[in-house]
Write a protein that binds this DNA or RNA. Structure first.
Length: 216
DNA sequence: GCCCAGGTGGGTA
DNA sequence: TACCCACATGGG
């Protein structure tokens, strides 16, 4: 299967990625929301502000007025929107799980995924990032780089949905959280290095030797 | 100045 | 369903 070859090639080239860059499950959840359509370097600044303000905890963040929260996460962009999203998540966590991430993550994967998707501001990629990286649930995260790379190699059709792409991974890669974790992180690294583009930008990339259906 | 970044939700046809 | 757009900062 092509994807398993991709994984080996990427790992050989880039090595372990040590994702997610976050010290606690709560930090990972917050980072997953803050990184939506945003460079991670900007998210780091926002998280630094939250830490400095003592707001990188369930209680600390819930105690903040939304305006104050928005000001702290300003460097991550879309800060008014994201403050609303963070508040919506915290409210749900408190009302359904007593404010405990541990309790929340004990739910079955599919049930928790459905619940996360009901929260304002949490779409499929963010829900899956929270599940995989925050709770070690074995579910594959599909992001823009993943889509572009698979598209370029003709492994998915142009109109493929998030679910379509996720199913390809679930069907061909063993259901194992550490493996899904590493694979997705490697795909993002490849994406950042423009491995989804044609030569010369892709020259030397670990996927170049695999067939390209789309010379984008 | 322009383009992009580890998306999502709301509106319209 | 399928587009289109708003949301916003910071780095290359």
């Amino acid at each position: 299967m092509a994807l398993r070859k991709f994984y080996r090639a990427l790992f050989k080239q880039f090595g372990p990625q040590h994702w997610w860059p976050g010290e606690t499950p709560f930090e990972i959840v917050i980072g997953a929301i803050l990184t939506q359509n945003t460079a991670w370097t900007n998210v780091e600044k926002a998280i630094h502000n939250l830490k400095r303000a003592g707001a990188l905890s369930v209680e600390g963040m819930e105690a903040l007025p939304e305006k104050r929260l928005a000001a702290l996460i300003r460097p991550s962009g879309y800060y008014n929107q994201k403050a609303k999203k963070l508040k919506a998540f915290l409210r749900r966590l408190r009302e359904h799980h007593g404010g405990s991430l541990d309790r929340m993550f004990r739910l079955p994967t599919e049930q928790l995924r459905q619940e996360l998707l009901e929260i304002h501001g949490i779409g499929e990629e963010t829900a899956d990032s929270i599940l995989l990286y925050g709770g070690a649930h074995p579910i594959f995260v599909v992001d823009a780089y993943t889509r572009r790379i698979l598209l370029r190699h003709g492994l998915v059709a142009p109109g493929a949905s998030y679910h379509d792409i996720q199913q390809i991974f679930h069907a061909s890669v063993v259901s194992n959280a550490p493996v899904y974790n590493e694979f997705h992180a490697l795909l993002v690294e490849a994406g950042k290095r423009h491995c989804w583009k044609a030569r010369p930008q892709c020259a030397g990339c670990p996927l170049e030797r695999f067939p390209h259906s789309v010379e984008a």
